[in-house]
Design a protein around this nucleic acid. Structure first.
Lengths: 333, 333
DNA sequence: ATGAAAGCGCTAACAA
DNA sequence: TTGTTAGCGCTTTCAT
């Protein structure tokens, strides 16, 4: 790989001049500029990003930490982040944390050492002190960390209200909740939202809430028990779509008709909802938009632009499909 | 952030000595070592990876280019790559190419400029010359590029044989194929595998092959037409699972019973197969393993270890589910 | 308008 | 065993 010196020699100018033209920076005569450009093309010169980073203390890369790219919610988010940052010349380093604060810390260290310019974080385990110590822009997505940190999330709690009210609206009398992992903010919020609506109903009991760990499998098992123990349940609000799918599976196995005997609704709006049978009603989060907003905000922060609003809470949307309504002859979905 | 000089000063030694202890490199007295370690801890010093990269011409990062992380096949792959590389101290830069050679080239340039140590590529559009020009280890996954390039793939063609034979085996008389995009090697191979089995059958006609672009939507539309025009079709081999899901949808809409009147089988083995109704039979690729193997190979290449076998072709596995067999009373799936 | 040179933080000869 | 120093490739003052 040719260096800036090679280009300078080839063009018969100094490295400073070459630097000026590649950065469109400072005065440089039209003719010399042409010479330099020609030399650059001749040698197929590309500036060394590492050397540049060392000097500038920035790398044009942003770090993205998510729990697990394998969880269907996150690829969309990652894609959004990549799309907008890439557009502005940034490149992204991806880290799966598995919700482990160890791993997260490791990544943060690496990000620091690599002069990453900013970080997007979907996590709970980090404290705001740790984040402040980074001295870099950070935006939290999906799960708020601390009011001091720029954040983009969905209205988890409100979404839960909508979901549960929808179940009530279609006539459910006993509504259970399969909740996500403890201490995961989104799961807690959705659970609270459920409680807001049901806890004063006389049919409500703590027995109606089980844990599904945000996974199909755990939710499947939990649902099996739940439905057996409380055959009167006629509605389930699952904390995410994967768990709703697990519940669907359990219902099928126990010959509970969905939605006639048991209505099920999820949360997130992942693609799988449209491929289950019956198709799954859900509360759709604007994942891609969340990612876009977070990425844009981060870049503004990095580039020291004014960021008026540092907290975005996106409304969610009820999407009714067949898991919460009778089959209509045509136009299903 | 403290630098190596700060540590040296704090410990009362030279930067070289500090360098020696952080790299466990060269002789250093136990006592001085202790002093240095202490200073490092005191200052919470972390070596600057950028400066190090500049000198060493390597960055401990590897580039991963895939078509689209949003396609459910790739998160698994990405996860595998991340898991093994991260374990060895590497970090990954993710790029979505959307099958565009433009974008791919941009990423390669960036990778070059950032001293990325090696690259894993799932692509078709790049030529082996472009890759050779990189002068870095590259391994191709999912889609072979050129026999000169280290490669890890699944047995696409063989898998297609298995799929089609399975359909024949359960009694299908007229088997259609929904193929993936032209010029995408995996799609071409699977198509060829289909042809291998059926082209000498008297019922075979080119009409039985339609394009589904590896997406649910396109496959859904294509299937709608296909089934209407050729109601005699009783088996569909889809080039991937997403397209099989599209076909499933079309079948349901046209009131074709799956599998009784129409058996459907996909390819890949993505999670969604288990959440459709009926559950989808498929040819399972060992995606995660493919990623692991590719990543290990890449690292060996980077570290100049001997790599005996540079071409891995993973066998695939028929997974029979209800989309190609009658419902059995219990133990379905 | 252009060039010389210092320095970003680190590593590795080479000296001592 | 330890220190001095050149240099990785670039940017940016400061001269000219």
């Amino acid at each position: 790989m040719p260096t800036i010196r090679d280009v300078a020699k080839e063009a018969g100018v100094s490295v400073a001049t070459v630097s000026r033209v590649i950065n469109s920076n400072g005065y440089v005569n039209e003719d010399t500029k042409k010479k330099v450009v020609k030399a650059i093309q001749l040698l197929n010169y590309k500036p060394n990003a590492v050397a540049r980073s060392l000097f500038k203390k920035q790398s044009m890369t942003i770090g993205l930490i998510i729990p697990d790219i394998t969880n269907p919610f996150f690829p969309q988010l990652a894609r959004a982040v990549e799309d907008v940052t890439n557009d502005k010349g940034y490149t992204i380093i991806l880290g799966n944390s598995d919700e482990s604060s160890e791993k997260e810390k490791e990544y943060l260290d690496i990000f620091e050492q690599k002069y990453v310019d900013g970080i997007i974080l979907a996590t709970n385990t980090l404290t705001s002190e740790q984040i402040a110590a980074l001295e870099k822009p950070v935006v939290a997505v999906d799960r708020p960390i601390d009011s001091g940190i720029p954040t983009v999330v969905a209205q988890h709690r409100d979404g839960a209200h909508v979901a549960v009210k929808h179940l009530v609206g279609i006539g459910c009398q006993t509504i259970a909740h399969i909740r996500g992992p403890e201490h995961v903010v989104s799961a807690d919020e959705r659970y609270k939202g459920y409680l807001d609506i049901v806890q004063n109903q006389q049919w409500y009991s703590e027995q109606l809430v089980v844990s599904g760990n945000y996974t199909i499998k755990d939710a499947y098992k939990a649902s099996l028990n739940l439905i057996k123990e409380r055959p009167d349940i006629d509605g389930i609000f699952a904390g995410n779509d994967l768990m709703a799918i697990g519940a669907l599976k359990a219902a099928r196995e126990l010959k509970k008709k969905v939605p006639e005997e048991l209505a099920i609704i999820g949360f997130d709006g992942i693609d799988m909802c449209e491929t289950t049978y019956p198709e799954l009603s859900t509360i759709v989060q604007p994942v891609y938009e969340i990612g876009v907003t977070a990425a844009n905000m981060l870049i503004d922060l990095i580039e020291n632009k004014r960021v008026n609003n540092q907290y975005f809470e996106y409304p969610v949307q009820l999407k009714v499909r067949n898991s919460t309504r009778g089959q209509t002859p045509k136009n299903c979905g």
